[in-house]
Design a protein around this nucleic acid. Structure first.
Lengths: 148, 148
DNA sequence: AAATAAATTGCAATCGAGTTGCATTTTATA
DNA sequence: TATAAAATGCAACTCGATTGCAATTTATTT
């Protein structure tokens, strides 16, 4: 599920999202496009040019703007932190495998949930402890109350 | 997906898990069994008898021991905190719906992922923004390296 | 029932991911 | 080039969760 570098043009992606082309945003988006798996805010900070000395607050704010514009997806982990991955047409939504031991999240091919256990056996998966489907959106109640 | 109170005997559950029967554990497990949806550590604290004055650290340690013994499941949220629900035979693993507006997590009936969008339409779901499948376990690499 | 070791709990301090306020800098537009 | 709006850095802070250690409670034996 790794991204090809010729995919997801940096400048075009920012322009389409209506985000101005700042050196910071270009740096973060370049890291995201070149990543071969979900990254944490700290991972992203480490992978940007040290010369730029990007502040962690800036990383979080850029990630928020990317998430709001659907450029990236946010993946909460069992360890209380978020990982991020590209959300372009070359990287559609898919299951993830989180290893509790090495605390690494890797991508899995999309399959039917009922077939998950067998299907994932061919991946870098030794043992499956839990398959969790998490749906996010807005409930009817909130919609009725015009909270959105 | 709410639990019947006659299900999941408190004393038996603790005994089978090899956990000693302390007043704190009984209180927390009783709250979990009677809950009609996932609860946060704070929720659980609020629902225990104020007379007991349980420390929040104790709540977290009890939740950890319950999780390790598969008595409960831990559900990470988009807001960086965890929710908990019973993980007994009366409450098998199932999808959850998290409303970004009211920040409430509710349970959904188990279905095939490919049918999720249509199936969830009948629930208390106005709009689905994301369906995330999260698989947890141990990867082959960690197993080979005898980290577990 | 009393004694004992092991397990549990409370308290204070701490951790760490993520956020906020505000001053400064950079970008986009005129 | 000037200007307003947006983005960034810095410091302080929030809050869920964790750690160390002393005090208490539990389970077990005498």
């Amino acid at each position: 599920m790794s991204l090809k570098r010729e995919h997801c043009n940096v400048e075009g992606t920012l322009r389409e999202a209506g985000l101005s082309q700042t050196a910071r945003r270009v740096a973060v988006l370049t890291v995201m496009i070149q990543a071969d798996g979900p990254l944490s805010a700290g991972d992203i900070l480490k992978r940007t040019d040290p010369e730029q000395k990007i502040n962690k607050v800036t990383i979080y704010r850029i990630l928020s703007s990317f998430r709001e514009n659907r450029i990236i997806r946010e993946l909460p982990t069992d360890q209380g932190m978020n990982l991020y991955e590209m959300s372009c047409r070359h990287n559609p939504s898919h299951p993830h495998f989180y290893c509790k031991t090495c605390r690494t999240m890797s991508c899995l091919p999309p399959v039917n949930l009922s077939q998950a256990q067998e299907s994932f056996a061919g991946q870098n998966v030794f043992r499956i402890d839990d398959v969790h489907v998490h749906v996010t959106g807005v409930c009817r109640q909130c919609h009725r109350q015009d909270k959105i």
